[in-house]
């Protein structure tokens, strides 16, 4: 069974249709890349998968492990293993990263009927992951993303992904705002999570990221649809010729 199946998805925002029948099938172990011009609907797709309010699904469906994802609350989706690394992570003043991650992890475990993780065990786990991503400990004591640089926010997203061990990870422009070294560290972090059971959907504008995280499938999105899919060479092709050739296809 495929892990994530988006079928003929139609989505409206404030009376305007953004996704016009988008389909995508992601199998366990695969890495999919989604590329496409600004405003083509990539973030919209990721938001609808994660369950952000404000989007009206007017047609189609999303199945996660064969179950109707659209029927689930965002937190339920997270607990079942859907993870979105946000293009623009928000700042949450007054809620320490530490507390937030602990509460979130325990909420997910509780929803799955697992035992809560104790503070010492949690501390150990976060420390290990933070270290591997080159995230200083004191960042965890600050409010979630508060005063973090753009790159630090992105690394914090990868930290959460590593901590929650989701089944499907959607990474919305995780490379934007990262310097070359940080990009490599973050990509290593993502690669470390690749496994035969887990799938990744990597949204990016730049072929460079795909040198680090090598995709199995590349999709081109334009005007709310997938207009072309292919192997990793499709990304190189796009780098050469741009999106103009797909404008008409859409």
């Amino acid at each position: 069974m495929s892990l994530l199946e988006v079928k003929d998805l139609q989505v409206r925002v404030e009376e305007r249709e953004i996704l016009h029948g988008l389909s995508l099938t992601v199998n366990p172990g695969q890495v999919h890349a989604i590329m496409g011009p600004n405003g083509s609907g990539k973030s919209t797709l990721s938001h609808v998968i994660a369950g952000k309010p404000g989007y009206e699904v007017t047609g189609g469906q999303i199945l996660f492990k064969g179950e109707d994802l659209l029927e689930m609350e965002p937190n339920e989706r997270a607990a079942r293993g859907v993870f979105l690394a946000f293009q623009y992570p928000v700042e949450i003043p007054g809620v320490t990263t530490w507390n937030f991650l602990h509460a979130a992890l325990n909420a997910q475990r509780k929803a799955r009927g697992e035992e809560e993780i104790s503070s010492p065990a949690f501390l150990k786990k976060v420390r290990e992951v933070a270290k591997s991503l080159n995230i200083p400990q004191d960042m965890l004591k600050r409010g979630v993303n508060v005063g973090f640089s753009g790159g630090e926010k992105k690394r914090n997203e990868i930290l959460q992904m590593a901590l929650f061990e989701p089944a499907v990870c959607i990474l919305d422009e995780m490379d934007s705002g990262l310097d070359i070294d940080a990009l490599r560290i973050a990509a290593d972090g993502v690669n470390a999570l690749r496994s035969p059971e887990r799938a990744m959907v990597v949204i990016t504008h730049y072929q460079r990221l795909l040198n680090y995280i090598v995709p199995d499938v590349v999709h081109v999105m334009s005007k709310g649809r997938v207009v072309k899919s292919g192997g990793k060479e499709l990304a190189l092709e796009l780098e050469e010729s741009g999106y103009a050739q797909f404008e008409d296809a859409a």
């Binding site: 997270a78 979105l84 946000f86 949450i92 937030f100 991650l101 979130a104 909420a107 929803a111």
Partner: peptide, 19 residues
Amino acid sequence: YMRARGLPEKEAQALLIQA
């Protein structure tokens, strides 16, 4: 954002209210 990380709505609200 908080719900996407697994926190039920009331719990997410509670954290924001505490802050």
